[in-house]
Design a protein around this nucleic acid. Structure first.
Lengths: 194, 194, 194, 194
DNA sequence: AATGAATGAGGTTTCATTCAT
DNA sequence: GATGAATGAAACCTCATTCAT
């Protein structure tokens, strides 16, 4: 079980996304995923330690590139405000680009047991760290309030965009998510007050 | 099954909260709940239609008054800003008051994929309506920006407080949640910017 | 548990017939019977040893009088052929008179476990004895073939009338059962052959 | 679940017959059947949809050919009387050939109240049709009385042989059932009368 | 490497019966 | 005698995982 790669590794992950999106978390049996991936049940276990490993790997693979792509776009030449807008926009853009994945991460994987959710949180840490960096930079450059609580601010950013994506998924992804990036960015930076 | 009778009804609900908080949603077998409640397995079914009915009732009993209590405190003599602070404070206060319950509602019950989620959404709907009312009032009284998007603002408020509570629960409720109400209120109203 | 009587004893038996006829053998719970009888569940056990005892008692009470009434009508002044006709006619007549009971004895009680069926057979013995007596008398009086096998002949009589009643019940008792007594009597006595 | 595969399918059916004959219908748990068949509980469900499917399949496999075999022996060169004798003889012969199966079909499976009874009736329908054909032929060829009522005559034949087999099973199959075919045939054709 | 038949642990719910009142 | 709340044993089926081929 050297983990990774071979084409089947990805086949199985894609199959898992498809099956979970289609049938829901609790109806995504290993045998269904194997069938969708075009491999035998047993083959799954040549590439993954167990079922949970499929799901965490799925999340790792998808979110690994998720954060990577955002970082790539947050270039040094941007102002801190622009960087935050890029983060929000890219968050929305990537999920809008793969609606099946959005269903899986926003709705289905959250039904998983607490253990799996802890691992997911582990993976999310890279994202939260990125947000923290932006916040620290913003305070250093005196664009943000000096007394801004990093942890709270991070939870506000993540909680807000996550809730917005979840609502979008629950409304069947039928409006333009990316278009919301600007007003959300505006609300976060400047608040509600006139 | 005339529902809500006797002390046993409450005993069983309390036992369910305890067991779910302790062992997690998927390890909360009826027999465990019965044992904790000090009744026989079969007795559960004199008071509840089935296992899901225990959970639904638990949520109803415990969270049914959640929104009501917040509404009661949002009196007419308060400014819109104060009202929003009351909403956030009461949200935190109520969950802080029963940490076991917070674990159950923030983490465990979300693993269900059944009627229970509909019930949870039902409760939430009342809460979201309340937020909407505050937003509309805020705009009318010109405390809030006239172009504030109600839906987005509502998702920001709810997403933020929910994320904060969830993080607090995952950190074993070991810091003062209520103390966060003011800075959160401040961030939402005035944003991050200096 | 002195068994018998008190008005409730009969109440419970009648309730059992009603409930079994209406809901079927496997859906005839003790609590349902108790409710129909207008007594508490526990009261059943003041009059019957257990559930099986209700059913055997039901059968005893109903079949006890069943055979008794037939015997009463088989008077000495009748020829053996007439006596056999009376037996068949009375068998049909009594079941036609109480269709609910017919459903219970022909269809529902036959779903009972083997133990109960053995007890039912015990009770049926009185009926089979009566048939045997007629057969013996018929041979003695040289109306019946001397080599007629009593056991087989008895099984033929009982098997035939029982099958005919069962078919009648399964066709919702919607034709005149008693009218079949004569042709059946004729077939049994004289056979099919011209 | 493509049905009917491998040796295990038959193993399980045979085990079901054995267990039901030995312990009775209501004490024939899936786990007991699995143990007797030498497979794991779960294996049962690779070959059968559910428990009832075991019983239905059992009946189909074992009794499906019952009528077919009788028909095969009722050749055109036989007189109508001989044909009736073949029918009775084959009925007895087939059940006598597998006493365990006779216990199962005459006593145990009749305790079911489900699709299984419908399946049993389905098989019976083919049998009853065959009897009807003989009766019609007998009347056409003027061996049987012209006023013979087909339905009653059919019920007499079936009721008689079924009752005789059931009695034989309840007496532990300890006498020769096939030997009874001739006297039964004689009784049915010529009746009791001298 | 790939297969897929086989495994077997585990949990909700029913209902006959009891017994304190 | 009468009640009815409480009991608790018992079983079908699913599905993640294994391992002989």
């Amino acid at each position: 079980m050297g983990k990774k790669k071979g084409p089947k590794y990805n086949q199985i992950i894609e199959a898992a996304v498809t099956i979970i999106a289609k049938h829901g978390y609790h109806q995504a049996q290993v045998s269904k995923i194997a069938k969708e991936a075009g491999v035998a049940d047993g083959t799954i276990y040549l590439y993954f330690k167990n079922k949970e490993d499929i799901l965490t790997s799925l999340f790792e693979e998808k979110m690994g590139s998720f954060v990577g792509k955002i970082r790539d776009r947050i270039t040094d030449d941007l102002s801190i405000e622009e960087k935050l807008l890029v983060l929000i926009s890219m968050h929305f853009e990537q999920l809008q680009a793969d609606k099946q994945l959005a269903i899986v991460t926003q709705l289905e994987l959250r039904q998983s047991n607490t253990d799996l959710r802890l691992k997911i949180n582990e993976i999310l840490k890279g994202y939260l760290t990125l947000i923290d960096e932006l916040l620290t930079e913003g305070k250093e450059k005196q664009f943000f309030k000096p007394n801004l609580d990093n942890r709270l601010a991070r939870q506000m950013i993540f909680g807000t965009v996550d809730e917005i994506v979840t609502n979008w998924v629950m409304k069947d992804c039928k409006y333009d998510l990316l278009a919301l990036a600007k007003p959300v960015h505006q609300m976060i930076l400047s608040g509600f007050r006139v």
